[in-house]
Amino acid sequence: MHQKIRKAIIPAAGFGTRMLPATKSIPKELLTIVDRPLLDYIVAEAFASGIEHVIIVTGRMKGAIEDHFDHAFELDVSLRNAGKLPLAERIAQDTPAAGTISFVRQQQARGLGHAVWTARHIVGDEPFAVLLPDMLMVADRPCLKSMVDLYERHGDNVIAVERCAPEDAHKFGIVSLRPTADGPVVTGLVEKPAPGTAPSNLFISGRYILQPEIFALLERQAPGAGGEVQLTDAMLALLETQAIRPFEFCGLTFDCGVPAGFVTANLHMAAARTDLAPHIGAAMDALYPRGGMSELPVTHASGHPG
Rank of each mutant, 00 (worst) to 15 (best):
P27V: 02
I33L: 14
V34D: 12
P21W: 13
E66P: 00
A48P: 01
F47H: 01
L20W: 11
E66Q: 15
S49V: 09
K62A: 07
D35E: 06
E29K: 05
V34W: 08
I42N: 04
V54K: 13
R36H: 14
A72T: 03
I65D: 04
P37E: 00
P21K: 09
E29V: 15
R36C: 03
E29A: 14
P21T: 08
G50P: 02
F69R: 14
M61V: 14
V43T: 06
F69D: 01
F73V: 15
A46N: 00
E74Q: 13
H68T: 04
T32Q: 07
T32G: 02
D35T: 08
A72F: 09
A46L: 00
K24G: 03
V57W: 05
A22L: 09
G63T: 05
L30A: 07
Y41H: 13
G63V: 13
S25L: 10
G59Y: 09
K28M: 15
M61R: 14
P21G: 10
A22Q: 12
L38A: 06
A46W: 00
G59K: 12
G59W: 12
F73D: 08
H71L: 11
Y41P: 00
G50T: 11
F69Q: 13
L20Y: 15
E45A: 03
H53C: 01
E29N: 11
H71K: 13
P37N: 01
I26Q: 13
A48V: 02
S25I: 11
G63Y: 12
L39Y: 02
G50S: 13
R36I: 05
D67R: 15
I26C: 11
A22R: 13
I42C: 10
S49I: 05
E45T: 05
A22W: 11
A48D: 10
